[in-house]
């Protein structure tokens, strides 16, 4: 276990800059997600931490030791691949033994002990003699996880480990990952393009796009106070609106809707939960006449697609408020719901 410092990392592939001046501090025992769309550089950043790529500029420091120029095998990390990368010619227990064997950790009996513990942690007792090809996808995933944690790495790197599982198994594994992290307290970097997964699992989330970190914060901060247009958009929880620059009014460009008292920003976010459908717009700071275009039932909540003079908004309404919402003539919100965004 150790702290991970990523300092001003830059990376270019043949003249194309894929990472620009990335700095990130992952505290000891912290679970940090790198979240972003494919091609944002999150996997490259993780490969640089693992030592599989070398950065063009910047440094990687693990537990106070500068490992920037060290080969992967000289760093005390482990990486769980999206493909699991189980060695097909080795049994489950030999796969889990592999990092111990390569690092010459303990006697064979001590290794057996560690393997048994790791198997118990991922609930695979009894499968140690199977070959990887005789396992289901979910089981292979657990073997890969056991292999990643068995050697007690200073930093655990997880590269989209859940993306090959079906939805039910994925939710199950998310819970197990949380429990496992609570128990082992490994410094963990989790790479994903799934915002729900990142928000569910992490202590902190770094949202990446175009080779930069847009915002790095605890999940709730990110959700409540997205700082940039990209973050608000990518998390998908907010309506992102572009404003016209007319002093004294909040004019939403597409609909040319004028509202008093605008924020000083070109883009604003209005969270879907903060919008209300109502017949009494006078109780709110801002309101607009609205038409319901479509509704999506989400269990405890319903998501409404709204049309405001040609502008599309989404609102999420909890179960108790359906009746009001259905008869609503206006979409309304209070001033506090508006989050100014930088571009």
């Amino acid at each position: 276990m150790a702290e991970l410092h990523i300092k001003q990392i830059g990376k270019s592939f043949g003249g194309v800059e894929v990472l620009r001046d990335i700095s990130l501090h992952v505290k000891d025992g912290c679970f940090t997600s790198l979240l972003g769309p494919s091609g944002c550089g999150k996997s490259t950043l993780m490969r640089i931490v693992a030592g599989l790529e070398s950065p063009s500029t910047g440094r990687v420091i693990i537990g106070g030791r500068d490992v920037t120029v060290l080969a992967p095998e000289r760093r005390n990390i482990s990486l769980m691949f999206q493909s699991y990368a189980l060695l097909p010619h080795l049994s489950v227990s030999e796969n889990i033994r592999f990092p111990l064997r390569m690092r010459r950790t303990g006697s064979r009996a001590e290794q057996d002990d560690l393997i048994a513990k790791a198997l118990t942690l991922v609930q695979l007792e009894g499968l140690q003699d199977r070959m990887p090809r005789a396992l289901s996808g979910g089981q292979q995933q657990r073997v890969a996880l056991a292999r990643a944690i068995v050697a007690q790495p200073e930093v655990l790197l997880l590269d989209e480990p859940l993306s090959n599982l079906d939805a039910r198994l994925r939710t199950e594994m998310q819970v197990e990952l949380i429990e496992l992290h609570r128990r082992l307290r490994l410094t963990t970097v989790f790479v994903t393009h799934d915002q729900d997964e990142a928000l569910t699992l992490s202590d902190r989330v770094a949202v990446m796009t175009n080779g930069r970190i847009e915002q790095e914060a605890p999940p709730s901060d990110l959700y409540d106070r997205p700082r940039t247009r990209f973050v608000a958009d990518f998390l998908g929880a907010a309506n992102v609106l572009e404003l016209a620059r007319e002093p004294g009014t909040l004019a939403i460009v597409e609909g040319q809707i004028r509202l008093p008292d605008p924020p000083r920003a070109r883009f604003i976010a209005l969270r879907q939960e903060d919008l209300e459908l109502t017949r009494n717009p006078e109780h709110f700071d801002h309101s607009l006449p609205v038409q319901i275009v479509a509704r999506v039932f989400l269990g405890g909540r319903t998501r409404y697609k709204l049309d405001v003079e040609g502008l599309t908004l989404f609102a999420i309404v909890p179960r108790g408020a359906y009746a009001d919402a259905e008869s609503g003539t206006h979409v309304a919100w209070n001033r506090g719901a508006i989050h100014p965004l930088s571009e």
Partner: peptide, 23 residues
């Protein structure tokens, strides 16, 4: 043989020649 197997070998503490030999 996927490149990921060799890379996994490296991240698990095996050097270049060792990966060739055992993977």
């Amino acid at each position: 043989i996927g490149r990921d197997l060799e890379e996994a070998g490296r991240t698990m503490g095996a050097g270049f020649w060792q990966v060739l030999r055992v993977v």
